[in-house]
């Protein structure tokens, strides 16, 4: 009888884990996986970028991230422009940040807790990334509930948000060259970064 209960519990564990996929658990799971990827491929930034992107992207709400980075001009953009902006912004984030991750292969991620967001559909998970011998860096993940899933719409390093930090420089380009100007600036820049990546890798 005891054995039977035990096997039932074990059988149910994955289901329980799924039901409990709250933001904190998501962050724990993803950070373990990302650190494993970094340890396996620490000499190959391109591979790191591809694998981390594949693991992280299903959890990211890139259109909302982009809308926060573009600010008030987002609503003036046509759906096609919004799509193009989100695509370029995503590429920019992936290229700029994910290739640089290899220096964190010995890092540890401590989940410090969750605090409520702007409304009940939002939560912020606070973590600290520590590398031996250095001050830990606060890293916050902003989650929102989309349907039944939690998705990340912003990330802040030491309080510096990826989205807010781009708003002024994006706004300047839009005021000067319009939304298409920003799309072009971002895609040119991404192409250049891609070129550098090929040379470096």
């Amino acid at each position: 009888m005891k054995k039977w209960i035990a096997s039932l519990v074990i059988a149910l564990l994955p289901v329980l884990a799924l039901a409990a996929a709250e933001p904190e658990q998501i962050v724990r799971g993803v950070s373990n996986d990302v650190l494993a990827i970094l340890k396996q491929n620490d000499k190959d930034p391109v591979k790191v970028r591809e694998q981390v992107d594949a693991r992280v992207s299903p959890l990211a709400d890139y259109p909302r991230m982009t809308s926060l980075a573009v600010g008030k001009y987002w609503r003036q953009a046509t759906p096609e422009q919004q799509q193009a902006l989100a695509k370029e912004f995503r590429t920019m984030l992936v290229r700029t940040y994910m290739s640089a991750l290899t220096i964190y292969k010995n890092a540890e991620v401590d989940v410090k807790g969750t605090r409520p967001g702007a409304d009940s559909g939002e939560q912020t998970v606070r973590t600290e990334v520590s590398i031996p011998g250095q001050k830990p860096i606060p890293l916050d993940f902003y989650f929102e509930k989309v349907g039944n899933n939690w998705k990340v719409f912003d990330i802040a390093v030491d309080g510096i948000s990826f989205t807010v930090n781009n708003r002024n420089q994006f706004g300047t380009v839009i005021r000067k060259d319009g939304i298409d100007g920003l799309i072009k600036t971002l895609s040119d820049r991404n192409a250049k970064l891609a070129g550098n990546g090929k040379q470096g890798g």
Binding site: W74, A118, G159, R167, N168
Partner: peptide, 22 residues
């Protein structure tokens, strides 16, 4: 943003909004 975050010891009441928000 980093200074705003530090004054509140990493727990600011809201993000510091810069630029023209939505």
């Amino acid at each position: 943003q980093a200074r705003w975050n530090k004054v509140y010891d990493g727990q600011p009441p809201h993000q510091l909004q810069l630029g023209e928000g939505d």
